[in-house]
Nucleic acid binder design. Sequence first.
DNA 1: TTACTAAATAGTATCTACTCCTATTTATGA
DNA 2: TCATAAATAGGAGTAGATACTATTTAGTAA
Lengths: 152, 152
Amino acid sequence: MHTHEHQFDLEKKIAEFETRCRQKGLRITPQRVAVYKALVGTDTHPTAEEVHKMVRQDIHSISLDTVNRTLLTLAEIGAAFQVEGTGQPRRYDGGLENHQHFRCISCGQIVDFHYDPYENLHNPGQVLENCTILRKTVYLEGLCGECSDTPA
Amino acid sequence: MHTHEHQFDLEKKIAEFETRCRQKGLRITPQRVAVYKALVGTDTHPTAEEVHKMVRQDIHSISLDTVNRTLLTLAEIGAAFQVEGTGQPRRYDGGLENHQHFRCISCGQIVDFHYDPYENLHNPGQVLENCTILRKTVYLEGLCGECSDTPA
DNA sequence: TTACTAAATAGTATCTACTCCTATTTATGA
DNA sequence: TCATAAATAGGAGTAGATACTATTTAGTAA
Ligand SMILES: [Mn+2]
Ligand SMILES: [Mn+2]
Ligand SMILES: [Zn+2]
Ligand SMILES: [Zn+2]
């Protein structure tokens, strides 16, 4: 894929994001857009502090608190989500296409992957009868390539 | 199951735990045993502070730091584990039989369940070729019975 | 354009859940 | 019984998240 197509994708996503904000009655601020842009532009599952660092290149005065608040807001409106199972600090993901995560227990890196059988898992029956299931997550842990090669 | 059978189970588990400690070269201290006992005796997935509260009934002077350290140790030697996806504070689980977790996003409670298809998921193929997969987790989120009835 | 108002932000203070430090105690093996 | 390394208690320190408040600003309507 060429750069100008990437560019187009990004602009499309931002346009959709702004529409979503309007629908939810949220104002479109430069800070909000910049945080969103930083998050969708990476696949590293950054922390709030990492996002802060990125966004500061554009908006020099943005505060860490705003980044934290904004990331929570993105998760609330479904424009992003927190990555499961990483403890502190929280890591965020702006990739909304269906995928799963592998986390290296040695270096902590999170690898995206997609494995079809992990989508559309059946709901368990009786056991959780009264519960409304909103999300099913599969995640894997282990040693990444580099860390397998370099046993501690 | 009757009380004396429960009792027997617990004593058996503690004996196994002590054996495991010896194998790992860990000393068997009253604090360690008490923390383990408290954890295996509940299905509430308690926090360190909750465990601390429980254990204090037996060992009045035990410190929160010791509880935290001990819970980490239990996880390290495989006598317990941290519950995935709950953020802070961490929640611990002493139930080692295969099971999965449902977490209510409203009240935060964690419900144990077991659904056979969630065991023995296949490993994804090429995508994670270089990685050593040590653990596969399925976890569900949604609204528990009580919280479904009481929409905010 | 201008003016208004509620929402959002920056900067800082506070809080929570650990994690580290050190003197003291204790489990274990000789 | 004794020696010694491991573990603990209690408190200090830390990271990350959250709350607070004065100021700024996006959105709307005159
Ligand atoms: Mn991802
Ligand atoms: Mn459990
Ligand atoms: Zn690694
Ligand atoms: Zn609930």
